[in-house]
């Protein structure tokens, strides 16, 4: 979709050599912290801004040369909705639709009506946008993207300001659009949302694309880890070390927490990363079945069930044991860095 896409504002690189590939028909999650260049990339894709260098193709067409051919097939919500406050919701949609020379004026009223229906705004259609709430404006923005049948939908933060019902509706809307064969490109920093609706994702950080692929690939790139709940952290760590695992004690400073009352506070939680599996053949189906993607580690001893056996054999009182797949959030933080500061 893009190749070496770069956008420079003065001496600041907003988008730095991004190679993005969005498969046709995918629901593509575009992730990144605030200020990482997501919206700028979208602006470049939609021809709102000119790239400093690099090339891109949208729907198979060279951009921005074929801009006027491509844009009618693209519905977009860019950086929040924007409407004329002195017009009603329906009038706003009709006006934007009238700006598209390819849209037929005859079906305009009906298309506006059905778009409003899809986002649940039929009752507020004739209200002035001035009187709309943030969430209603957001819905109107999505309705605007749905005015015509689209092959590609670019939704920048679609669930911003929406209530839980609205969020759910957007999710089901995205699924139904995808089921109709449209490619949906969703930019977001809400990871849970992306995990729920997307098939593919890419992660931006400080203008660079740091990862992209299917959701499963992205998760797998991170390491799985084991979590041991035990009152004997010392011996347990030794056992783990013998198995070639580096244990960390209570990395979050949390206590055992969930264990039975009498032992509360005395249990320690040990974490140890499982080495990434070079072989993708699950050794024990029983062990692999649980998470589906779980793979046995390369040195036989480090398989989760072997770890438990070793711990118990060494007399460690194991009160809890779990293997944890890295969540997209962990992966996201690992790639984009901790901390609250906006990366420059």
């Amino acid at each position: 979709m893009t190749r070496g896409l770069t956008k420079r504002f003065g001496h600041q690189l907003a988008v730095d050599g991004v190679d993005l590939a969005v498969p046709k028909g995918a629901v593509f999650g575009f992730l990144g912290p605030n200020g990482s260049g997501k919206t700028t990339t979208i602006r470049l894709l939609l021809g709102l801004a000119a790239a400093s260098s690099g090339s891109m193709r949208v729907l198979g067409e060279e951009m921005p040369r074929k801009l006027s051919d491509v844009l009618p097939r693209v519905g977009a919500l860019v950086e929040g909705p924007a409407f004329y406050p002195f017009l009603s919701g329906a009038a706003n949609l009709r006006r934007i639709d009238a700006a598209d020379p390819y849209a037929s004026a005859g079906t305009r009223r009906a298309r506006v009506q059905s778009a409003l229906e899809r986002v649940g705004l039929t009752h507020a259609a004739d209200k002035l946008v001035r009187a709309y709430s943030l969430g209603m404006k957001q819905r109107l923005g999505i309705a605007n993207a749905l005015l015509a049948p689209r092959e590609l939908l670019v939704l920048d933060e679609p669930t911003n300001g929406l209530d839980p019902q609205g969020t759910r509706e957007v999710r089901s809307l995205v699924r139904s659009l995808s089921a109709d064969g449209a490619t949906v490109f969703v930019s977001s920093h809400l990871l849970a949302e992306v995990e729920q609706i997307c098939t593919h994702a890419a992660i931006m950080s400080a203008g660079r694309l740091v990862a992209q692929g299917t959701l499963a690939e992205l998760r797998q790139a991170g390491q799985a880890r084991i979590r041991v709940l035990t009152p004997d952290p010392g011996p347990a760590a030794q056992v783990l070390a013998r198995l070639g695992l580096t244990a960390t004690l209570n990395p979050d400073g949390a206590t055992g927490g969930t264990s039975a009352g009498a032992h509360a506070g005395t249990d320690a939680v040990l974490f140890a990363p499982l080495p990434a599996a070079p072989s993708t053949v699950p050794r024990e189906t029983a062990g692999a079945a649980k998470t589906g993607e779980q793979q046995a580690a390369a040195p036989g001893a480090a398989a989760p069930e072997a770890v438990v056996a070793a711990l118990v054999a060494a007399g460690v009182r194991v009160r809890g044991f779990a293997t944890e797949q890295v969540s997209l959030e962990d992966r996201f933080v690992a790639l984009t860095g901790e901390g609250f500061d906006v990366v420059q």
């Binding site: 844009l71 860019v78 924007a82 409407f83 598209d100 020379p101």
Partner: peptide, 18 residues
């Protein structure tokens, strides 16, 4: 200033036409 320019351009109104 209102932000509607980007939606008009994406519609696409076409810059010369607009």
């Amino acid at each position: 200033g209102q932000g509607t320019l980007r939606y008009l351009l994406v519609a696409p109104a076409g810059r010369i036409r607009l």
